[in-house]
Structure formats: structure tokens, C-alpha cells
Design a binder for these strands. Sequence first.
DNA 1: AACTATGTATATTAAATTAGTATGATAATT
DNA 2: AATTATCATACTAATTTAATATACATAGTT
Lengths: 146, 146
Amino acid sequence: MKLSTKTRYGTRVLIELALKVNQGAISVSKISSNQKISVKYLEQILRTLRQAGVVKSVRGPKGGHLLAKDPSKIYLGQIVRLFEGQTDLVSCVSSPENCAMAAECLVRDAWQDATSILYKKLDNISIASLIKNSDKDYQGAACISS
Amino acid sequence: MKLSTKTRYGTRVLIELALKVNQGAISVSKISSNQKISVKYLEQILRTLRQAGVVKSVRGPKGGHLLAKDPSKIYLGQIVRLFEGQTDLVSCVSSPENCAMAAECLVRDAWQDATSILYKKLDNISIASLIKNSDKDYQGAACISS
DNA sequence: AACTATGTATATTAAATTAGTATGATAATT
DNA sequence: AATTATCATACTAATTTAATATACATAGTT
């Protein structure tokens, strides 16, 4: 039931980029040291974000990463979906074909309701809303568990 | 993000017991064959349910398991909490002491809100409500994924 | 009282998933 | 052309989850 580290790290990375939205591209090495995430692991996370169109990357010297969208248009729901392999509480919610009895299953609807309520909430929390009340010195870093 | 098999199996077991609430104690071997869960694994699940006061057990020949509470008083939220090791989306929600920066963390409140919304929903779904519209022949069995 | 069908508990193994590392390649700026 | 950085895949390690095995306890039946 817990979120993967990729989801948590990915969120932290986006917060750092959002806080530094006026500083141009931020290099992997800088994010790595700020967030205490290894360069190689971070590259995987950034690639996922880039392929989803959330982050854009600039190569070469002075290159790095920056947000591809306004922070108010990036929602936790999208981040969670990107990084969590299975986004439903149980697999039959999105793949009823996996279960011969999905149609008459007594629990499936309940899990589905719970799942959709969770994502409805997550889809309503933007990166912008998270950083709204923060001071610019804080880099979104160093929290071990989120 | 997905629920463990113990949570899913546990729910199915409770549904079967709720549907057979007038048939006295149901033996592990019967539940095992109905739900296609190995006897030994099922025993672990039943022990958890028993220790939580959800199920009661009768020893000896003709023994078995039955609900210890009315199905309308057993909620999915309780079942999930019983079987999922970590019930929060991120560990700092319930254990802020794990993270030195929990207080000023920009994301923690958001994960906490999402977690509480999810459980608010699960705490509102009873076993009784799940079986309300079912016919008595269905034993809540055979669904692979839930 | 012995027998046997049942539940109880703990320890161990196996499988799957997640987390992280290593290697190598490609692209862009200076 | 050299340098600095991102991109992509393969591999390894650690953790968690799932399941099995072994041993014991209890209650009813004969």
C-alpha cells in the first residue's frame, strides 16, 4: 500500500525544479546532491518524467532539466500513475479480464470506488499548491520518507 | 500501491463467513477449497482475523470459524489495516519521527490528506453492504485478483 | 482413556518486486 | 575536437510478500 521511492523521489525532484523555475536548467549532479539521490537512479526518474512531458532536458555543458509545464498543471495523481506499476488497489479494477468472476465479484466495486476516490484527491493537488507557502531557500530536499 | 494477497484473501474469507452466518462454524478445509487458498496460508489469515476479534474459532471435531461480529460492523478499512504492514501511502505520515524534516516537508500534508480520504471511504464499506445484493449460492470464491 | 479431526503457532523457504549500480552510448555547447 | 551532460539498457542486490513445513494444543467421539 505504500508508494515506491521513485514516486516519492520524483515528487521531490519536481518540487525542486518548481522552486527554481527561474534559474534555467538544473543539472542532474545538482539535484542529486540536493536530494541525496544517486546520479544513476535519478537519471531513470528524470527520464520517466521527461518522456511523460513533465520535464524537459537540455544537453551539453550548462545543460540540465527544467519543468515542461506550469507547476499548477502538474498533479500528484499524474506522478503516482507514472511511477507506480499498478495504480489500482487491486488488479481487477483496471483489468477485469484477469478475473473470470469480475462481473459478479462482491468486492470489486468497493475497491474500485476507493481507488477512484484516492486518485480524485491526488489529481487535485498540484505541485504549485505544494510550494505556495514555502520560502525559496528550501529546496524540497532531505526528507527520507517522502 | 496494490493491496497484499492477505488483504484480498481475508476479505473473501469474511464474505464467505458472512454468507454462511447461519451454518455454524466453517472449517479451514472447506474455506480452503472454496477460496482456493492453501490450508496453511489460510490459517495465518484466520489467526490475524481471530486476534483482531473479527472471527472466532471453535476447536476440535466439528470445529471451525465464524464471524465474531455482525457483518454490518466489519469494515474494509479495518481489514486493510490488519493485513497491510504499512497503512499509509508514505511512512512519514504516521511516523514523522522517521524524518528530520517532516515539519517543514512540502509533500507530507498532501500524502496525509490522500491517505485519510482513502481510509474514510474504506471505513464506510461494511461486509454486510457487500453481500446485500448477492444470492446465497455464491460463496464469494474463485476471484483470482480480489 | 485413547483416538482423531480440528485449530494454533513459529520457523523456514521460495518467489516476486523494488531499489540501486554499472556500462556504454549519444547529443549539444564551447 | 574536447568536454560536459543526458539517454538507454542490462545487471545485481536488497527487501518484501507469498507460501510451505514442522510441531503442538484442544475438544469432541467412541
